[in-house]
Write a protein that binds this DNA or RNA. Structure first.
Lengths: 186, 186
DNA sequence: CATGACTAGTCAATTTCTTGGGTAGGGAAC
DNA sequence: GTTCCCTACCCAAGAAATTGACTAGTCATG
C-alpha cells in the first residue's frame, strides 16, 4: 500500500494524468517516491475504483486526449488515516553500495565510473530541486516562508531531497577519489 | 536479482547463517540493503542450488545447530559481473516523506511524533556505525586506513551510511521544529 | 514447571513490482 | 514519405517482496 498513498499525495498538489505522473515518478522528481508507468496506471485505476480519486477527460487538439485525476474527500480521509499510523522503518537498497561493500575483491574501474555517473546525476537533481524550491516559496525568503507560507509540505520534502542528493554527490565523489588513489599505489 | 547480490556481498565479509544474516539485514546494520528473514532463507536456498555459495553444518551444543554459508569462486565471478554492469538508478521510497508532502492538509501532531522517532533511530544508528568504523580500521587513522588498509569496502559503505543517517537525523529534527512552530502560530 | 524470550529454520498466500511487449495519433527530421 | 520520437494509455507474465503463520530446541524468570 505504499504506492497508493504516494500517488494520493502527488495528486493533492495538483491534477495529473497518468502519463504526467509517470514522468514525475520515473525521474523521481517527485522526490519522495519512485515507480514505473505501468505501476502508476494500474494504481490510478484501482484508486478510482475505490473512490479515492476521480478522473476527468481533458480534450487536447494537438495531441491525444488525457484523463486527469483529483483526490476526493474519501481520498483525503485515507491520507489522514495513513499519516496518523506508524511509518514503516526506512529501508535502504542500493546496487552501488553493494558493489562498494565488496570492492576489495573486484576490479574497481567500472565501479569508479558508476560512482562518477551517480555524482553527476545527483548534481543535476540538486540543480532541479533548487529551482523547484525557488518556485515554491515565491518571493519570500526561506525563514519567512516556512513560518507563514501556505503550502510548505512540498518545500520540506524538497529540502530533504536536496540534503540527500548532496550526500550522494559528496560520498560518490570522495569514494571515487579514494578508489582512484589506491589504484595508483597498489 | 537485487537481494541475490546483496547476500553474496554480505557473505564475502565472513560466514553467516541464515539467522545471523536475517539479524543484520533486518536492522539494516548491513547498511547497504534490508530484507526480511523469509526472503533471506529462500535466497540462500536458491544461491546454494545455483552453486554461488556453499553451506556447512555447524554443530552447537547450547543451541540448535546452524548452517553457515561461504561464497564459492562461481559466486565471486557472479559478483564481478554484477559490479561491471550498470547500476540501476537509485530509487527512493519513504512513507514519512509522503506524509510531509501533504502535511498542509493534515493534522501535524502524529507526523511530528514520527519525525522525532526517526531522528532518534538515526542517532542510534550513528552511534552503532561509529563503533563499526572504529573496529574496522583498527588503530590506524582514517586517512592512512583508506590509503593502505586491506578491506576498505565495508568501511566506505559505513561512511556512506553515517552521512545518510546524519541527513535523516538533521532533516527530521529541523522539520519537526518547523511544524511545531507553525502549530503555535496558526 | 509454566511462561516468555532467543536461536534456527520452513511453508504458503498474497501483494507488489518489474519487464517487455502492444495500440494509436501527432509532429519533426532527413 | 519514411523513420523516429513524443504523448497517452493498456495488458499480461513472471520475479520479488511482504505477511502471517508454524516447528523445535535452549535458557532464564518467577
Amino acid at each position: 500500500m505504499g504506492l497508493r498513498h504516494a500517488v494520493l499525495a502527488a495528486l493533492c498538489d495538483e491534477e495529473y494524468s497518468g502519463y504526467q505522473l509517470a514522468k514525475a515518478f520515473d525521474v523521481g522528481v517527485a522526490n519522495f517516491w519512485s515507480a514505473s508507468p505501468q505501476q502508476l496506471y494500474s494504481e490510478l485505476t484501482r484508486l478510482e475504483q475505490a473512490g479515492l480519486i476521480s478522473g476527468r477527460e481533458v480534450v487536447q487538439l494537438d495531441r491525444p486526449n488525457k484523463r486527469v485525476f483529483t483526490v476526493t474527500p474519501a481520498g483525503l480521509e485515507e491520507l489522514a488515516k495513513f499519516a496518523a499510523a506508524d511509518s514503516k522503518p526506512l529501508s535502504f537498497r542500493d546496487d552501488l553500495l553493494v558493489k562498494i561493500q565488496v570492492i576489495d575483491q573486484l576490479d574497481p574501474e567500472p565501479v569508479i565510473a558508476q560512482l562518477e555517473e551517480r555524482a553527476a546525476e545527483a548534481s543535476a537533481k540538486l540543480e532541479l530541486f533548487g529551482q523547484i524550491l525557488l518556485r515554491l516559496r515565491g518571493d519570500l525568503d526561506e525563514q519567512t516562508f516556512l513560518r507563514r507560507g501556505e503550502q510548505i509540505g512540498p518545500y520540506l520534502t524538497c529540502l530533504g531531497g536536496i540534503r540527500f542528493q548532496q550526500v550522494v554527490r559528496d560520498w560518490s565523489t570522495t569514494t571515487a577519489e579514494v578508489l582512484r588513489q589506491r589504484r595508483g599505489t597498489s
